[in-house]
Write a protein that binds this DNA or RNA. Structure first.
Lengths: 119, 119
DNA sequence: TCCTTAGATTGACATTGGTCAATGTATTGA
DNA sequence: TCAATACATTGACCAATGTCAATCTAAGGA
């Protein structure tokens, strides 16, 4: 059985392609919606720590057990945050055996950072 | 009477000074809290549009009337969003006569973008 | 002085969002 | 086949958030 990957709510690669920096000109309403969804996914302490832990891991991959060790949150709550980050396109999930391994989607953070950076 | 500026909830200049990129190593919980507060302030379509409109203005300054023209939101709601952005340190307010002029705090967006940018 | 205008504040409301206990689903090992 | 393990999902609860109507404050102008 293959793992079916959830379609990201926000297509970050597209956002990267067509959006000018926030400060250049007034952005379109739907662009604002899309960017806000991405930022909302990041705007939580637990999720920022999850991203950071995943990124800092040896091969930029971490399983849920790595996270439950370091975060003082229940396993369902961590699963919830992981789902939010996968849906937003920041993390991808690979299931091997009983374990789920999460890794950063390359460039996903940078594209958001790029939109925020003025000039 | 002088205008008393609200203290930013998140000291962005400090965040810029002491924080490594998100991906380098696992960030400390209080860093995550601080960054999440900044991101939460940005993670709203109306507020992103406000920032964009202010930044795109001639001298990077806009009054509330400029915003009520372009956003389909009530004046109190726009005032609310402006307060959130000022409190978070992204906008500053200058009152001249009856009008309030808002402008971008230089570097505030970049410091958030810098933390998000990996490598 | 009074009215008008620009904007901030308050209060109320509905929606969203973070959290956990309980349960469900695969996968592995005995 | 059965038990244990790793993780996801569901449902419920409370807190936080976005929105607006109503009101308040302050600055000009007649």
């Amino acid at each position: 059985m293959t793992f079916t990957r959830t379609l990201p709510l926000t297509d970050i690669s597209q956002a990267d392609a067509c959006s000018s920096p926030l400060a250049r000109a007034a952005i379109a309403p739907d662009h604002a919606d899309s960017l806000a969804r991405s930022l909302k996914a990041l705007a939580d302490p637990a999720r920022l720590r999850i991203i950071s832990i995943v990124a800092a891991h040896a091969d930029a991959e971490a399983c849920v057990c790595d996270l439950t060790d370091q975060l003082t949150l229940s396993q369902p709550t961590i699963s919830h945050h992981l789902k939010v980050l996968v849906d937003a396109g920041f993390l991808s999930r690979a299931k091997r055996g009983t374990w789920s391994y999460y890794s950063l989607v390359p460039g996903s953070l940078d594209s958001v950072a790029g939109v925020l950076a003025a000039v």
